Computed example of a mutant assay.
Amino acid sequence: MKMSFVVHGGDFRVPAGYEAEFEAVLAKALKGDGTIKVTIEPNYQKRTLKENAYFHVLCKRLSEMAGGTQEDIKEMAKAKAVHLGYPMEKDKSGNPIKGDYGFKGIPSSEANIGECALLIEAVHMLASENGYYLED
Score class of each variant (00 low, 15 high):
27 A>P: 00
90 K>W: 08
53 A>T: 14
55 F>P: 00
56 H>G: 14
100 D>L: 12
131 G>K: 07
52 N>R: 15
129 E>G: 04
30 L>V: 03
111 A>M: 07
122 A>Q: 03
119 L>E: 00
6 V>P: 02
31 K>C: 03
1 M>E: 11
27 A>D: 05
62 L>V: 02
33 D>I: 07
69 T>Q: 02
51 E>C: 05
71 E>P: 01
40 I>E: 03
104 K>V: 15
123 V>H: 00
80 K>P: 02
21 E>N: 06
105 G>K: 01
41 E>W: 05
57 V>K: 11
109 S>E: 13
18 Y>A: 05
75 E>F: 04
28 K>C: 07
90 K>G: 10
68 G>L: 05
120 I>L: 10
80 K>G: 02
126 L>A: 08
35 T>I: 03
76 M>T: 01
100 D>N: 14
43 N>A: 14
121 E>F: 08
52 N>E: 13
122 A>C: 05
108 S>D: 10
132 Y>D: 06
63 S>I: 04
111 A>W: 03
114 G>E: 13
122 A>V: 02
71 E>T: 14
32 G>C: 04
135 E>F: 05
28 K>S: 13
3 M>Q: 12
51 E>F: 08
16 A>M: 10
99 G>Q: 11
30 L>N: 01
47 R>Q: 10
33 D>R: 11
119 L>S: 02
136 D>Q: 08
23 E>I: 11
87 P>L: 11
54 Y>G: 08
